[in-house]
C-alpha cells in the first residue's frame, strides 16, 4: 500500500510538470504576446518593448521557461504585474477559502448522493426512484450560477437566514460556516445530483453480479448483502467518477465564488483576467491544475484502500 502510494505520488510529478509547461506556452500564444495583453492594443511600440524588458520577455523562450519552472519548484509564483506584490502569499491567503468550499461541497455530495443513489437503485422504477432521478437530472442540468442565485434569493433575501456575500471572519468557526452554507449548498446539490446518478447505476450493475447472488445464497441478511458486498464493489466506479466530478466542481467553484463574492482562487483568477495580469493568471492556473492533480492522487490512493487487486497491478 505504502509502496503503491509512493509510486503514485512520484508519478504525479511529471504530470504536474506537463501541465505547468502547457500553461506556460498557452500564455505565450496570446495575440501579440503578454505585454500587448497587459497594455492593450493601442500601446506604443516603445512601451511594449519597455514592459517586455521589465518582465524579462525579451530573453529567449528557453531561458524564460527554465526560469518559470525554477521558480515553481522553489514555490515562487512570481510577482503581480499590476501591483508588484508576490503572488504566492496571496494564493496562500485565498486558497483555504476555495478548499473549504470545494471539500465541503464534495462531502455534502457524497453524504447525500451515495445513500440516495443506493436507495433509488433498490426502489428501481418505484415512485422514489422517478422522483430521485428527476431531481438529480435537474441538479445536473441547472447551471451553478443560476442555482446559486436561486438559493440566495430564497435563503438570504426571502428568508433572511444566510448572508448574501463574503466569507466571514476566518478566525470565527461559526461565522465561517454561516458564510460557507449557501455556496456549499449550491455546489453540493450539484455534486449530489451527479453522485446520485453514478451510485444508482453502479449499484444496479453490481446487484447483477454473481457474488451478490453468492452472498444471498450464504444466507446473509439483505443489509449485509447490499451495504457490504454490493456497495463496497460499487464504490470502485463511484470513486472514479467522483474524481471526474471533482474537476467539474472546481470549475464551478469559480462561478460560485463570483456569485457569492467569496474570496478564493476563482475571484483571484477573474480579477487577474480583468486586470490583464497574466503572471497572476498563469500562477492561479498552475495552482488549480495542482489541485486537480492532487484530487486525482487521492482518488487513486483510495482505490488502493478498497480494492485489493490494485496493489499488484
Amino acid at each position: 500500500m505504502i509502496q503503491f502510494a509512493v509510486r503514485r505520488i512520484i508519478l504525479s510529478i511529471p504530470i504536474l510538470l506537463i501541465v505547468a509547461t502547457l500553461i506556460f506556452f498557452l500564455m505565450r500564444t496570446m495575440p501579440g504576446g503578454p505585454a500587448v495583453a497587459v497594455l492593450g492594443d493601442y500601446a506604443t511600440k516603445e512601451a511594449i518593448e519597455a514592459l517586455e524588458k521589465q518582465m524579462g520577455l525579451d530573453r529567449p523562450l528557453g531561458v524564460q521557461y527554465a526560469d518559470f519552472l525554477g521558480s515553481l519548484v522553489r514555490g515562487d509564483l512570481g510577482k503581480s504585474i499590476i501591483n508588484g506584490r508576490p503572488i504566492a502569499p496571496e494564493v496562500g491567503r485565498v486558497l483555504p477559502y476555495t478548499l473549504q468550499l470545494a471539500f465541503s461541497s464534495l462531502l455534502l455530495g457524497i453524504i447525500l448522493g451515495i445513500p440516495m443513489g443506493v436507495f433509488t437503485a433498490l426502489r428501481r422504477n418505484a415512485f422514489f426512484d422517478y422522483f430521485g432521478r428527476t431531481l438529480s437530472l435537474a441538479g445536473v442540468s441547472i447551471p451553478t450560477f443560476f442555482m446559486g442565485i436561486l438559493l440566495m434569493l430564497l435563503f438570504s433575501i426571502q428568508l433572511d437566514l444566510f448572508p448574501v456575500m463574503g466569507a466571514g471572519d476566518s478566525s470565527d468557526l461559526r461565522d465561517t460556516l454561516y458564510h460557507l452554507f449557501l455556496p456549499t449548498l449550491t455546489l453540493g446539490l450539484m455534486m449530489t445530483a451527479y453522485i446520485t446518478r453514478t451510485t444508482r447505476s453502479a449499484m444496479l450493475n453490481v446487484l447483477q453480479e454473481e457474488y451478490v447472488r453468492t452472498a444471498r445464497a450464504k444466507g446473509l441478511p439483505e443489509r449485509i448483502v447490499i451495504y457490504g458486498h454490493a456497495l463496497r464493489n460499487a464504490f470502485i466506479p463511484i470513486i472514479s467518477f467522483i474524481g471526474v466530478y471533482a474537476i467539474i466542481l472546481i470549475g464551478n467553484s469559480i462561478l460560485v465564488e463570483i456569485v457569492f463574492s467569496r474570496p478564493g482562487l476563482g475571484k483571484m483568477m477573474i480579477g487577474a483576467i480583468k486586470q490583464r495580469d497574466y503572471i497572476t493568471l498563469q500562477s492561479v492556473m498552475v495552482v488549480y491544475a495542482s489541485l486537480v492533480v492532487f484530487i486525482n492522487l487521492l482518488i487513486d490512493l483510495s482505490y488502493g484502500l478498497i480494492d485489493p487487486r490494485v496493489k499488484y497491478e
Binding site: Y211, T214, A217, G219, P221, H229, D307, R309
Partner: peptide
C-alpha cells in the same frame, strides 16, 4: 434465509465471479 448457506448451500459455476473480489 436462515436455511440458506446453513442447511442448504449452493456451489456456483464460476468461482472467479462468484466470490467477492474485495473480500478475503
Amino acid at each position: 434465509r436462515k436455511i440458506r448457506g446453513n442447511r442448504i448451500a449452493m456451489i456456483f459455476q464460476e468461482p472467479m465471479i462468484s466470490l467477492n473480489p474485495l473480500y478475503s
